[in-house]
Amino acid sequence: MPIVLIVLFGYAITTEIRRAPIAVLDMDHSEISGKITACLDASDYFDLAYEVRNIGEAQQLFREGKIRMAVVIPDKYASASHPQGAIQLLADASDPNEATQLTAYATAIITQWAAANRLPRPQLDTDQTIALYGAPQGIRADVLLLYNPQMLGAYNFVPGVMGLILILICAMMTSVGIVREKETGTMEVLLVSPVKPIYIILAKVTPYLVISMVNIATILLLARFLLGVPIAGSLALLIFLSLLYTLVALCLGILISTIADSQQAAMLISSMALMLPVMLLSGMIFPIENMPDILQWVSNIVPAKWYISAVKDVMIKGLGFSAIQKELGILALMVLVLVAISVKRFKIRL
């Protein structure tokens, strides 16, 4: 499963930009503006689909969904007498991630081209027509991307998939494993034996802990060598972090097993109570900063949020222990609380 997920997210469900259709409104008609246009078109990211004559046409194309970004080159942009004229980038920010990426790519391409031709650094104006969080028109954005200059999706989803897979395998499998014993009646015999409940729990948890460790290794190897995501920080810290998170997930699984009475119920609770929050509220797919306050608040109790953020810090940004102290602390606290609740709830009787 981890291999399938990694490949699926890596290739099929890609959030990267490939040949996005754009429109150019060239009011300058100079040699330079032509070269800028050609340069954008030549890149892998953009496909010059339309050349429009005024801003209204561009907006019409946006509404029809035919283009995803428009580049506006103002009149006399290239003339020396108006050095402050700025190229305006308009992107459809109904998909904010994509809009950010599009403008970032375009900015990078134009800046590079200018540098290569020893021209003064062009001024760019990033604007997002359906502004969700975009800069209002007129403000000059100097976009500088840290850590993931190419905006590769893998940088975002590898920590996300790790967070998802670990919680799925550990919590779902543990809960289903324990509940299955209840269903087949073997739990009845186990409970009557003198074995302490803690040993039953440990015996159920250990195999899944091992499986998760193998999964972490698989994901990291795939991420590093197949998708080219670097592991910038300490590998030991990353593994320690993952172990802590795995413990949280295992405790969640035990907790679910004390609530559910059938395997189906355990599966349902696991997927509803774990998978959805992890997918939606951890920042894996949707940035938490964009959420309403209440959801941002709720996201704080999703362990995956802290794990994913810490993994990003260590793996992508290469930060050390001190940077993820807060996340480690919160995860450790979660383990303690969950262990306390599940041991209290684990029934020594039927």
Binding site: T184, G185, E188, V189, S193, P194, I348
Partner: peptide
């Protein structure tokens, strides 16, 4: 005394409860 008792009794539930 359930802990001590569990050492001394053998129980065979009505449903077949071994690992199939």
């Amino acid at each position: 005394d359930y802990k001590a008792l569990r050492q001394r009794i053998g129980y065979m539930p009505g449903r077949f409860s071994l690992y199939q």
